[in-house]
Simulated scan of single mutants.
Amino acid sequence: MSKAGPASVEFRNVSMRYGAVTAVDTVSFAIEAGQLVTLLGPSGCGKTTTLRMIAGLEIASEGEILIGGKDVTHLSAADRDVSMVFQSYALFPHMSVMENAAYGPTVKGFAKAKAQEMALEKLALVGLKGFEKRYPSELSGGQQQRVAVARALVLEPQVLLFDEPLSNLDAKLRRRVRQEIRDLQQSLNLTVAYVTHDQEEALAVSDKIIVMSNARVAQQGSPRELYEAPADAFVADFIGDANLLDVAITSVTDGRADIALGPARLNLPARGLAAGPAKIAIRPHSLLVSEPGLPNGLPGIVRKSSYLGNHVDLIVESPVGELFVVSPDTQRPRAAGDSIALAFAETGLVLVP
Rank of each mutant, 00 (worst) to 15 (best):
N310T: 06
D198R: 04
V9N: 15
L166P: 00
S140L: 03
D232G: 00
D246A: 12
L128T: 14
A202L: 04
L294K: 02
M84A: 09
F86K: 03
A4D: 15
L188T: 07
R12K: 15
G255A: 11
I210S: 15
A111E: 13
V27K: 07
L294N: 02
I181A: 03
A60D: 09
L266D: 14
V177T: 01
H311E: 15
D254P: 03
T48N: 03
G142H: 01
G130W: 07
A218N: 01
E117P: 01
L203Q: 11
E225L: 05
V82L: 06
A236N: 00
A236M: 00
P319S: 11
G19A: 09
K108F: 08
L160A: 13
P165N: 08
E138Y: 01
K108N: 12
M95T: 06
P277E: 15
H311P: 10
G127H: 01
A257Y: 09
A4W: 11
A260T: 06
S15A: 00
V195A: 10
A341G: 14
V350W: 02
P269T: 10
A336K: 05
I259G: 08
V211E: 12
P269K: 09
P223E: 06
E225S: 04
A229Y: 00
A124K: 11
G63A: 13
S251C: 10
A148L: 01
